[in-house]
Amino acid sequence: MGNVDPAQSSFPLAAYCFMTGFIDSVSFTAVFVWCGFQTGNSVQLALALARLFSGPPGQRDTSFHIADKQALTSLLTFIAGATIGRIGDRMGAQTRAWLFLGTLIQALFTMAAALTAWKSGQGSVAEVRGNPAWTNADTFVAIGFMSASMGLQGIMGKRVNTQFTTTVVLTTVWCELMADPNLFQLNRFVITRDHKFIAIIALFLGGFVGRAIIDAAGAATTLGVGTGLRVLIAIWWIFVPGKQPKGSKNSS
């Protein structure tokens, strides 16, 4: 139940960022929906609502498109996953016990997504935005489990309170990086700048690796690999050094 030291949590948090790109590569490749980036899904739903008032009465498109259904599924399950993350507030958001357990729950969600994607029997790659590869009920469940895992990861990353922020949405990271006063001081290590670079690179690598596995073995296998990676990250949290009491270095 000891707290980890946020300053020494860079590796598992960078792995979280990697998983953001990895999981989103699956959902975007199949249905053009980001399970971790809910800004786009929220705007998409706003556009779907606006479409109800577009055109003359009697000729308006009042259908709920499958892409909008998938975006709504992702948004709602992301919120549900983030809500589960509040369990950490009771256990201690920075305790090894919660960071291990919460990451293990993420792994279980990813495993459930892998199984439902496999059971769906559908393809993994959508060639055209208006023609998603996933359309049946099983794939909606897969999207839900992937999004829930990202929502849980996001709130857990935020609670550790580092330069990696939520490990999910990196728009803020990009803005803070470009606004960092030490951005061009390349002759020394700057945590506020360099950890943001690590987060961005890790997410990029996650997307690249995820798509490579999709092309080689399909979405279900990719999610299976993601399950194993999340289990490794969960174990990793156990070995992160604890936070030292203030003044301990001086007293020693």
Rank of each mutant, 00 (worst) to 15 (best):
V141Q: 06
R230T: 12
A216Q: 07
S25I: 04
F18L: 00
Q38N: 10
T222H: 01
D180S: 01
M156E: 00
S63T: 15
F22L: 14
A216C: 00
A179S: 15
A117F: 02
I143C: 12
Q38D: 06
T171R: 10
Q8G: 00
P245E: 08
R90N: 09
I233R: 05
A179L: 14
D215L: 00
Q8D: 00
G207Y: 00
V168A: 05
A133I: 12
T39H: 14
G85F: 07
I200S: 06
K119C: 01
A133V: 11
I233W: 03
P132R: 01
A199Y: 02
C175L: 14
V190M: 04
T116C: 00
E176N: 03
D194H: 13
L104G: 10
A48P: 11
V168T: 11
L52Y: 10
F189S: 00
F18I: 02
A30H: 08
Q38F: 06
W34N: 09
R230L: 13
K246A: 13
T83K: 06
I191D: 05
A216M: 00
A142H: 03
T95F: 05
Q44K: 15
L229S: 06
G102S: 10
R60T: 02
V169R: 05
D68H: 05
F208E: 12
T162Q: 05
V125Y: 04
F53S: 15
G88T: 07
A107L: 09
K158F: 11
R230F: 14
P241D: 02
G123E: 02
F53V: 15
A93H: 10
T192R: 13
S124A: 07
S252I: 10
F28R: 02
G123Y: 08
G242W: 09
I23P: 09
A114C: 10
E127F: 11
A46V: 12
I235W: 13
Q59V: 15
F140W: 02
S63F: 09
P57M: 00
F189Y: 08
